[in-house]
Structures are given as structure tokens and as C-alpha cells.
Simulated scan of single mutants.
Amino acid sequence: MRVHKLAFATLAVTAALSLTACQNDEPGTAQGAPTTAPAATTGAAPGGAPAPNGPASNAPAPNGPASNAPAPSGPGKTATPPAAAPAGSTAAGGPAKCRTADLTLTATDHTITGDPANTVVVELKNHSGKDCTLSGYAGVDLKTSAGTLSAKRSGEPVVTGTVKNGKSTYFGITYPANTTGGSGVRITGLVVTPPDETQSVTLPWPGAGSLPVTDTAGSPVKIGPMGSAGQGE
């Protein structure tokens, strides 16, 4: 009878130990298991590449404030051209230069008896409908029986002047009188090119009919700058 009691007690102890071992093997209840997952590592990934969940980059966000740098001018970009000055004016807003098409040119004999040289005055009248400026020397050629004779500049200082619409400016042409008694060099016409222009105007010659023949080098005909002669000269 004692042998049966010992065998039953041993069986009960073994069963209790077995039950405890099974309970310890169930997932999520094992002793010593961490209750929270370890924090993610923020260090560099193998090979030097940044960890996927590392610190945010310092690069500016794609939709951040616009840069102050000028827009690129490469392909696909169009640079904004500077604003053009209005027609008939300079970039600073003042009157534009007088063009040949803006002017009416006439030539008049203004020789005064007793003067050492003869004089023709050329008038340039502004009919453009707006003010314009004229400064410097015109180009002047005399057509003669011996060919074209270009006038020389007198060397007087140049002054920029504004010619108001409907008004005129003048310059003088001086040339020696033919007192030799011979036919001299016959003058047949006058060609005038306003300053800074390439378009010329051909006018009738209003002065003496000839120039004296001379052996002196250079042209005996001289011109003054714009504004060097007046209407009464």
C-alpha cells in the first residue's frame, strides 16, 4: 500500500513540472523577454550610406522661398529684354537726332560786299512734327566742272542744339571770289548731308558761278558747324 502512494506522489510532481515548462514556452510570456522594441539606430548604414530613417537633410525644401538669383538664360528660359525708348526719343527721354527726312533744306546767297570771301547759308527746317537735335558739321560737296569738291570744316566748336518743330537752324559755307578775270571752275550744284546721316539732299547753287583756279593744295571751300550762321547772315 505504501508503494502505491509513493508512485502517485511522484507522478503528481512530474505532471506539475511539465505544466510549468509548457507555460514558459508560450510566445509573449517568456521570462526575461523585453517588453518594448529597442530604439532604431540612427547611425550610418554599412558602406557609408545614410540610414533610411536618419536625421533630415539641411537642403532647402523644393517648395521653399524663391531664390534671389537671376533666372537662367539657358534652353527653355527667356530673358526679359530692357524696355525700349519710345520712338522719336533718346534712351534718356530727350529729343531724338534730326534725320534727313525730318528736315527741309534750302541754300541762300548771303555774300556781303567788302567781305574777303563769299558766303552761302544753308537752312535746315524741322518739319517732323516733333523736336529734334542737330549738332556737329554737315557734309558739303560742291559739284563743279572739274568734279566734286568737298568742303573743309572751319574748326569752330560744336554745340548741341534742339530744333523745335517748325523752326530752323543754319550753317555757313564760305568760298573765295573769282577775281582773276578768267572763267575759273564752274559750280553746278550743292550736295548737303546732315550730321550723323547718310542720306543727302542736292540743292541748286545760289552763290557765285565759279571758283578761282588755284595751285594751293586743299579745298578753298569751308563750312561752319550747326548754328554757326543766323537767318540774317
Rank of each mutant, 00 (worst) to 15 (best):
F171P: 01
Y175M: 01
L17A: 15
G230I: 10
W205A: 00
G207V: 00
K97H: 11
G139R: 00
P212F: 09
H127L: 06
A9K: 12
S200Y: 01
T111C: 03
S228L: 08
G209D: 13
C98R: 05
G172V: 00
G76R: 03
G139S: 01
G161T: 03
N24K: 10
A7H: 12
G114K: 06
S168I: 07
V201M: 11
D102Y: 11
K222M: 08
S219E: 12
A16D: 02
A15W: 11
C98Y: 08
V120A: 01
T148S: 05
G64R: 02
S89F: 12
G209M: 09
S57E: 08
V122L: 00
P62S: 06
I187C: 00
A101Y: 09
Y175R: 00
G207N: 00
G43W: 08
G88R: 02
T198A: 13
Q31I: 10
Y175T: 00
G47L: 08
G88H: 05
K167M: 05
G43Q: 04
L17H: 14
T100C: 03
T169W: 09
S154T: 11
P212I: 07
T20E: 10
G28N: 12
A117V: 15
P46Q: 10
E123K: 15
N165D: 14
T198K: 15
T202K: 12
P62Y: 10
P34W: 08
P212W: 07
P75M: 14
V213I: 09
A66M: 10
A44G: 09
P86W: 12
A146R: 11
G182T: 11
A33I: 03
P65C: 04
M1W: 15
V221E: 00
G218F: 00
